[in-house]
């Protein structure tokens, strides 16, 4: 990250052609970059400098520092016993059943919520895109789950499922305290996650839908395709890049689930996600070494997910080409 801060003089990009030109040119004519071009480069770097500096200082440096911390025995409750222990923390974490339980919980929530959201989000996107009446109202109301503070939504769900307070606890769960058991808790958390983020998925998919030309669908209809065939054979293939981007974004986002879990179960009954477990070790347990180790492991997991997406689906992933679209 820090090597983004290169000096403006860039020999590799500098004009290599002037020297090749014929010898009758005066040395003055070799001026590689005109004032305008130089000013442009200076301005470019100057404008990016604050963003680069902040990102380097608040994201770049800490991530390196956390790798260093993960190699230490470092517990704030016993600061005297701090020492370099190499990979010991990794062995501790990776051989710990709590970690693996949290990993499975996270993966389960991620897979289920993203899968359901894809289907639900597609339906919602189609409704928002094609509805004949009240398009504004539909779009406005779907933005509410997206915009609302996750903690607020989580409290709403918590009270809804709490016996004695909630309507869902009585009607759906028959008065059972669902949030005190592992599997029902995870289901409730997944539902809350789906409710909150389906609109985001739907919006991304809707943008993809907008890229499907109406004429193409008309042509398919003339060619004898049913509505379902038009959807599967024309729409989905054309909007595939948008679908993949939406999936990637949501998968990475779901993987960091924390807020909903914190409010709904606080990680009890083995419902911790990896983020939740890391938080508990770090802020509650004040064990910086172990916490950092988990941080690094989560980072690696996210990198693997992103890598797999990019590998499987090629350049459709965002950033495959900074300027390329259409």
């Amino acid at each position: 990250m820090s090597h983004a801060l290169r000096p403006p003089a860039e020999p590799a990009d500098a004009d290599p052609t002037a020297t090749a030109a014929d010898s009758k040119l005066s040395p003055k004519a070799k001026a590689a970059l005109s004032e305008g071009k130089k000013a442009e480069r200076r301005l470019g770097l100057l404008l990016c400098a604050p963003a680069i500096l902040i990102m380097a200082a608040v994201a770049g440096w800490p991530i390196i520092y956390s790798v260093w911390l993960s190699l230490q025995r470092y517990d704030l409750k016993f600061p005297d016993r701090t020492e370099f222990v190499g990979l010991e923390n990794y062995v501790t974490v990776l051989s710990n059943p709590y970690w693996w339980n949290a990993m499975w919980v996270t993966v389960l929530i991620t897979v289920v919520s993203v899968a359901v959201e894809l289907v639900l989000g597609m339906a919602l996107a189609l409704i928002m895109h094609r509805t004949l009446v009240g398009r504004g109202i539909v779009r406005t109301s779907t933005l509410i789950p997206y915009g609302i503070v996750t903690v607020v939504a989580a409290f709403s769900w918590r009270y809804a499922w709490t016996p004695g307070t909630g309507y869902l606890a009585e009607t759906v769960a028959g008065g059972d305290p669902v949030l005190t058991e592992k599997i029902p808790s995870i289901m409730v958390v997944t539902l809350a996650e789906i409710w909150k983020t389906t609109p985001f998925m739907a919006l991304l998919l809707m943008a993809g839908l907008a890229l499907v030309p109406d004429d193409l669908l008309k042509a398919a209809a003339m060619d004898g395709a049913t509505a379902w065939q038009r959807f599967t054979k024309v729409m989905v293939p054309v909007m595939k890049p948008a679908i993949l981007v939406a999936l990637l974004f949501r998968t990475l986002d779901a993987f960091r689930i924390f807020d909903n879990l914190f409010v709904l179960t606080a990680g009890s009954q083995g419902t911790s996600s990896v983020s939740m477990l890391t938080y508990n070790n770090l802020i509650k347990g004040l064990n910086l070494g172990i916490g950092s180790t988990m941080s690094v492991l989560i980072f690696i997991a996210v990198a693997i997910i992103a890598f797999v997406f990019v590998k499987l689906f090629g350049t459709a992933a965002p950033g495959g080409d900074g300027g390329g679209r259409r």
Binding site: M55, V58, S66, S275, T278, S295, V296
Partner: peptide, 23 residues
């Protein structure tokens, strides 16, 4: 710069919590 921004956008925030807490 574009690449780094994208990286941060996909970053698990919890990974930054531990070092930032200490820093």
């Amino acid at each position: 710069l574009i690449g780094v921004s994208l990286l941060i956008a996909m970053f698990p925030q919890i990974s930054l919590v531990s070092p930032l807490f200490e820093i």
